[in-house]
């Protein structure tokens, strides 16, 4: 039951890590790489707070063993913030107060971005459905739905102008 040496590609950086197979990716990101923007809320795949992007698809990091992620392209809130990819969503969340304690927020943003990449013009019910696996205990969700809807419209308008 020794440790495994794996290489993880996280936010464009390659990391060689020696880890136990039992370690899930959320723990490895947080403990080994100090990427603490990926939060842990339940560790049994329900709350969604650890949602990250693996090979472009949103994934619960607590349900993916880090050893399974070898060779995958991993993106966390830190990478998505630095690249600016979700800057408009982050702005909208801030201006709409779509976060209170902020613990669900990185995962909520990544999930919202996933929706907008697949469905640029979602209605409110679709937004609610897509984030329905992400617990937010503070906001009651409406402000989050508003913020995502605002960004969807803004991107549509920008797309039309371009």
């Amino acid at each position: 039951m020794g440790k495994h040496v794996i290489t993880l590609m996280v936010n464009g950086e390659s990391h060689r890590l020696e880890i136990e197979p039992r370690a899930h990716l959320a723990d490895v990101l947080r403990d080994e790489l100090a990427l603490t923007g990926t939060h842990i809320g339940c560790e049994h795949g329900v709350c969604g707070a650890c949602t990250i992007r693996v090979d472009g698809a949103i994934t619960r990091a607590c349900l993916l063993l880090a050893v399974q992620a070898e060779g995958a392209v991993i993106e966390t809130i830190e990478g998505l913030s630095d690249s600016g990819e979700i800057g408009d969503l982050q702005d909208a969340f801030r201006h709409r107060n779509a976060l209170q304690c902020g613990y669900c927020t990185p995962a909520m943003l990544i999930t919202a971005q996933d929706l907008l990449l697949h469905n640029p013009n979602p209605d409110r019910a679709t937004i609610r459905d897509h984030i329905s696996g992400n617990y937010c205990r503070c906001t009651g969700y409406q402000a989050i739905v508003d913020a995502v809807e605002t960004v969807a419209k803004a991107r549509q308008t920008a797309g039309e102008r371009a």
């Binding site: 990427l35 923007g37 809130i77 830190e78 801030r94 107060n97 976060l99 902020g102 927020t105 943003l109």
Partner: peptide, 10 residues
């Protein structure tokens, strides 16, 4: 909020 939306909270 800026730090929280970027996952930079403590």
């Amino acid at each position: 909020l800026e730090r929280l939306v970027e996952g930079r909270g403590t």
